[in-house]
Design a protein around this nucleic acid. Structure first.
Lengths: 247, 247
DNA sequence: CGGCAGCTTGAGTCAATTCAAGGCCTGTGG
DNA sequence: CCACAGGCCTTGAATTGACTCAAGCTGCCG
């Protein structure tokens, strides 16, 4: 999976031209000149489901933009119990700045494409461009919000509510058009039942039973185990446990 | 503890001189001149346990340095179920930058002292000093690490493991001297049993039972319901569920 | 074709909850 | 000074939601 023809003269690197993350991801923080220098160090990768992104011996993956696919971040206890502590979608930035040891593992949940860069290049660029650091900061704040939302789900919701909340979250992240609360939404689950259970702190059997129940109740339809259609998102929302009431 | 000795042309504000957060907190990012301007807008507050920090109608609390005490961050479902999604200790910075609506409530768990500043002052200072934003970024990354650690606890640990993990975390955050794994550590619990249960996703009865069990097993001693002594931290650690295995 | 991984479903079990009662402090008012 | 009320905490007994164990289904791949 090599790409990197080094392009020194053109205003904007060819690869970046058509890049999904050119404007929306962290690269949007860079001006053309910075982008050119930065792009010299980047490489594209494709990773199949189950492939490790970090935790293995490949330091080039240290930092990446996620261009497509879903990445799961996991933590594991020594007896094998596992918890998914985050899911990342494009155009998220992958990697933990300012720390060599990541205490989490990152793994491709679906087939994934990355634009990767060496740690040093990112950290140099971050010193140079406060705007880049600013974007990373904002993403981190969003991840923290997501993490805390998931904590409520893990600590205080019932199994039916957990599964409904998961579907709602996935539906919102994988939507490919307008999302009206009343228009049908459909998507492919990026995770297996076992992975969903690691996300929600349940067992795969319980996840399966709850999905069956939602299907029986007419809240969702499922084809081929993975493809889900939600006719009414608001009906699904009702099953997520009462919304948080600020104040 | 001399206050008047090293007076520069831009004297450091008197209040900041003896401030616990002068160097360790976010204020450490500011040079004396910046600090002087910044300090003009700050006010100190003392808040008793149970007092709300945000979520109420007092915008002056929007951002603060936590100088002493413990603050709990909570989320609540509409039927009253509550989850503590974070605990903050001095010299943490309180507040969610770049967002007017915080989806979480912050409340004093113990008696708390704050150094507060208006939102606008912080955001102005942040534009001016990338170092300030950098420190906030780093704290946020640490909070994210903590949040993900807690997710494992919430999703995958048993009640005994949860309570042991909580004690370990508190012990490490409230330690007031050297912490050897084998030397006795003691501290006051900053939370009631009910609050601990909201932190761990349990009921107060279960928390109480597990504390009783740890006491009966000689892992901890408890005086006055709140004061805990851990003779051997490593023994407590053994009850936290296997440590995460990176890779 | 067999083997395997992922998924579903059922039956029985158990950890944590709910419900209930009582003890221990602390502050308050007679 | 004591009596009393209200938090907070502990403990017991009964209940239950999710888990474990087990069996069978499906689709895919060699």
């Amino acid at each position: 999976m090599t790409v990197g023809q080094n392009i020194h003269s053109s205003p904007i690197p060819v690869l970046c031209h058509s890049c999904e993350a050119r404007h929306s991801g962290v690269c949007g923080a860079l001006d053309p000149d910075q982008l050119v220098r930065f792009a010299e160090t980047t490489t594209r990768h494709k990773i199949e489901p189950g492939g490790a992104l970090i935790g293995d011996a490949e330091p080039v993956y240290s930092y990446s933009n996620l261009l497509s696919g879903v990445v799961k971040l996991t933590k594991t206890l020594s007896d094998g119990r596992q918890q998914i502590v985050g899911l990342q979608f494009s155009p998220d930035f992958l990697g933990r700045p300012f720390k060599l040891e990541s205490a989490i593992n990152a793994e491709a949940a679906t087939s994934v494409t990355l634009c990767s860069f060496p740690r040093a290049a990112v950290e140099r660029m971050m010193k140079e461009s406060p705007e880049l650091e600013h974007r990373l900061f904002k993403q981190t704040l969003n991840e923290l919000d997501d993490a805390r939302e998931l904590m409520v789900t893990l600590g205080r919701k019932t199994a039916p509510e957990k599964v409904a909340s998961f579907l709602l979250m996935i539906g919102r992240n994988m939507h490919s058009g307008v999302d009206s609360a009343e228009r049908p939404t459909c998507f492919d689950l990026p995770l297996t039942r076992a992975e969903i259970s690691d996300f929600l702190g349940l067992t795969n059997e319980t996840v399966s039973r709850q999905l069956t129940r939602l299907r029986a109740d007419g809240v969702i339809r499922i084809e081929n185990k993975r493809h889900v259609t939600v006719d009414s998102m608001s009906r699904l929302e009702q099953r997520c446990g009462g919304r948080v009431a600020p104040l």
